[in-house]
Amino acid sequence: MAKAKVATTSLCGCFGCHMSLLDIDERILELIELVDFDRSPINDFKEIQGPVDIGLIEGGCANEENVKVLQEFRRHCKVLISVGDCAINGGIPAMRNMVPLAECYEEAFLKGPTVVNPSGKVPDDEEIPLLLDKVYPAHEVVKMDYHLPGCPPSADTLWAALTALLTGKPVDLPYELVKYD
């Protein structure tokens, strides 16, 4: 039987969830027995190669590129999982949702205390993705199949959820893995 394909990406996240995935430590050897990685920061593929069984999304959507990547994941992944609080709620980046977008741009490119910008203009370079009007959680942009909460979800949580999905068992996380106080 062919190994399952897994793809991962960090949208507007801090890569903390990916670090947490690496915290499965030596179990990564077991994981490699079960899966092949498609697009992921782990192998540095920039594009999705083909049909994917499980997609892991870290971070919410803050700009046009995030939306593009997320929609692409949705098109190619059978099962798509919001991993961590930013994908689920928008997280820390969503704190800007309380501030008008013009003020965000102003602070970032014009008036911030460490900004040096002799042009005095908001840059219009295509390399800088356009920001969305606010930060959206993943499930407000595409349909998400599962949500794994946590900041980040612990390695054990990720391990338990992934292995359950890969071996066709119900994702039944014990209380210790989804409690946060």
Binding site: E64, R74, L101, A102, V122, P129, V142, K143
Partner: peptide, 28 residues
């Protein structure tokens, strides 16, 4: 369509940034 939510409208979401940067979207 393709698991995308109709309630999310990329044009509305990008409107303010287009006006502020004076350019169009690269992706949409």
């Amino acid at each position: 369509v393709d698991g995308q939510l109709a309630s999310f409208d990329i044009n509305t979401a990008l409107g303010p940034a287009k006006a502020l940067t004076g350019r169009d979207s690269v992706h949409f």
